[in-house]
Amino acid sequence: MDWDQLDMNPRVIAAIKKANLRSVKEILNLSGADLQRLTKLSCTDVQYLLRAVSGALRKNSGLTALQLFRDENHSTSQRRKLSLGCPVLDGLLRGGIPLTGITEIAGESSAGKTQIGLQLCLSVQYPFEHGGLECGAIYICTEDAFPHKRLQQLTERQSQLRGDIPRSVVQKIKFGNSIFVEHAADIETFYECIAKKVSILLSRGMVRLVVIDSIAALFRCEFAAKDSVLKAKYLQTIGAKLHRLSSTFRTPVVCMNQVTDTMGEGPSGDHSSPCSTGKSVVPALGITWSNQLLMRLMVNRTSHLVQPAEDAPHGSTLRTMRVIFAPHLPQSACCYTVNLEGVKGIRMETLTW
């Protein structure tokens, strides 16, 4: 950026250049104390610098009424969604994950919930025109260790296989370097994480996606049956905080959830269908948590194998994704597999097993 174009004291501009600060983003990502240390400016000068930079940023991001009417701007578009990195799954969700609200992905162990979360963390870093948000993600683990090796594997495969994105663009994206990992094993640590760390990262523009894996683990051992009222209050408090963060920063919040067995008919009356597991399960945490959600997706691992592929010589296990509820989607489903390159949707008419 040409600092000389800003309406600032030449002394402050000289200090910025001497500190080798080259962009507005670098300045806004630093605290006041860090700016003082790097630029050797006084506290008053640093405050003046921040006000000038913020004012210039707001001036440059102004929109006309016609642009708003046409819904053309990437950052304000109401139709914008975060891609799942797969055209089949994006087609099921009519573009991907909404930018505001909480999206839940519920399913049994090994259904592919974590794989979808990791793929979203990579997709969010792509340019707007390719379904991303040009920003990083924060991944909050509440039970298992973060799968760093799997992320690295996905990073390498995605950078090789995304043929719809120019190679020059892919090389500029530092996959994995913009994913912040936090661990929270109890409710107090988790709430402090979203109230402080997540808020700071969002306010500084360093992340545009929050993934929680999983929300149910926080409540699994903390509460007895007699503590249902207290549990509901915690769920409402956490849900309200996540909603505020999502709506304030237009950031998707994706929560993985576990399931519990239930009595009754399974999800599909035809248990021979490839989209049926023959089991009847419901997401954990009950109606209190359900009321906090914008969209609920259920994922299942079936007993069917898809025809062997090049990266899966023994065949891939077929999994399904179902839209349980969403304000903008009908109840529908599609199939997918998990392989070396990530989560890959399969059209029903092409299935062989």
Results as ranks from 00 to 15, higher is better:
D2G: 03
Q5P: 00
L6C: 03
I13Q: 14
I13R: 14
N20E: 15
S23P: 10
E26P: 03
G32E: 15
L41P: 14
C43D: 15
Y48P: 03
R51W: 12
V53D: 13
L57Y: 12
R58H: 09
S61P: 03
G62V: 06
Q67G: 08
E72M: 08
N73P: 04
S83Y: 13
L84P: 07
P87K: 06
R94N: 15
A111W: 09
T114H: 11
Q115W: 12
V124G: 07
P127T: 14
E129W: 02
G131T: 05
E134V: 00
C135R: 08
A137R: 05
E143S: 01
D144I: 00
D144R: 06
F146R: 05
K149W: 08
E156C: 04
Q158K: 10
S159A: 12
P166C: 01
V169G: 06
K172G: 05
I173F: 00
S178T: 13
H183G: 08
A185G: 03
L201K: 04
R204L: 04
G205W: 08
M206H: 09
R208A: 06
R208T: 08
V211T: 08
I212V: 07
C221A: 04
A224F: 04
K233H: 15
L235V: 00
G239F: 02
H243I: 01
S247W: 06
T248M: 05
T251W: 01
V253E: 03
G264Q: 11
G264M: 07
G269E: 15
S276K: 11
S280D: 09
V281H: 13
P283S: 13
T288R: 02
W289S: 02
T302S: 13
H304M: 12
V306Q: 12
V306D: 11
A309C: 12
D311M: 05
P313W: 02
T317D: 04
R322Y: 10
P327A: 00
H328N: 15
Q331E: 15
V338R: 03
N339A: 11
E341Y: 09
G345V: 00
E349Y: 09
E349M: 01
L351Q: 09
L351T: 03
T352P: 00
